[in-house]
Amino acid sequence: MKKSIIYSLIIFLFVLLAGCEKDEPMGYKGRPGVYFNGNEFSYSFAENPWKDIDTVLLPILLTGDLEDYDRKVKAIVVSDSTTATGDMYELLEGTIKAGEETGYVPVVVNSVEELEKSVVRVRVQIVENEYFKELDLVYPACNFTFTAQIIKPYNWSQLEYFFGPYSTGWWKFIMEKLGRTSLPYWDMWSPIPNPDESKYNMSYYEMSNIQQMIRLELADYNKHSTTGPMKHDDGEYAGKEIVVPAPW
C-alpha cells in the first residue's frame, strides 16, 4: 500500500515537472521587443559649453532572446508633442548589439541660439520594424528635453547620493567650487544602466573626495554667511537648508 502511494507521488511530480517544462517557452520567447529605460531624459549644453553639437544616447532595454547579430531599432518623433525645431536635433536609428540586452537610440543635438533662453522637448516613440514586434511595454515612448541653460543634470539620480536634493542654486555652488560644469558619474550598481560609459566614467572614489570637498565648502559658506545657512532656491525643497548626506 505504501509503495503504491509512493509510486503515485512520483508519477504526480513527473507530470507536474513535465507540464512546467512544456509551459516554459511561453511568454515573451519568440516575441522580441524594446522599450525605453525611463520616460524622461534631459541634456544641457551648459554642461559642455565648448560644444556646438553633441550626441545623446537614450537607453533602451530588450525583452525576448539575445541574438548573435545586431538589430536595428526604429524610432520616430511625435510631432504634436514636440517643441524643438528641426534645426535643433536629428533622431538617429537605434541599435541592440549582438549578445546584449541593452542598447541606445541616439539623438544629435545642436547648440542654436534659441536654446540660450528656452528648454525644448522631443517626444520619441519606438515603432515596429522587422526585428521588434512587441512594443506594448513599460515605456514605448519618452520625452527628451534639452537646452543651453542650467538645468538638473540627467545623472542627478546618481549624484543625489553625494549631494542630496537638486536645486539650481545648489548646483551652481557645486560647479563654482569645483571649477567644472559636469560630474560624469554613474554608479556601477545602479538599477538604471549607464547610458554612455565613455561619458559617465568618474569613479566612486573621485566622487567621495569631491563630496568631502563640497561639504567643507558648504560649512565655510555657512560659517561666514550673514543671512544664515545656504538654502535651496527652487524645486521641491525650496527654502529648506542644504545638507550634504553622510558618507556611505
Rank of each mutant, 00 (worst) to 15 (best):
G164R: 07
D52F: 01
G103S: 03
Y221H: 14
P195F: 00
S111A: 12
I6F: 09
P59L: 00
V119T: 15
E67S: 11
E24A: 13
W189I: 10
L9M: 14
L218M: 02
L178R: 03
F146L: 04
T226M: 10
S182F: 00
K2E: 12
G86C: 05
K3V: 14
E206D: 15
K29Y: 14
R31Q: 11
E24R: 15
D54T: 05
A18M: 11
G99Y: 00
I126Y: 01
Q212K: 13
V108K: 15
L17V: 15
S182T: 13
E93D: 13
K133E: 13
D52R: 11
N37F: 00
K177I: 01
N48Y: 08
L16H: 04
N201G: 13
F45A: 11
S79H: 11
D68P: 00
K51M: 11
F12R: 02
G179R: 06
W248C: 03
I150N: 09
Y166G: 10
D68F: 08
A18N: 12
T83G: 06
I126L: 10
V119R: 14
P59S: 01
P193A: 02
S208I: 11
G33P: 09
L62W: 04
E160N: 10
H232W: 04
G86T: 12
Y104N: 15
L16K: 05
W50I: 12
P49N: 03
A238M: 08
I53A: 12
P32E: 08
P184A: 08
D68R: 07
I210E: 03
A141Q: 15
V244F: 03
V243T: 11
S111E: 11
Y7G: 06
M188R: 07
S198M: 13
C142L: 05
G19C: 06
L159I: 06
P229H: 08
V15I: 11
G94R: 01
H232F: 03
E67L: 07
K29Q: 12
E241W: 02
R71K: 14
I76D: 14
W170P: 08
W171M: 12
L66A: 01
D65E: 15
S44W: 04
Q125S: 08
A141H: 11
G30W: 04
H224D: 07
G228C: 05
V124E: 02
M207F: 02
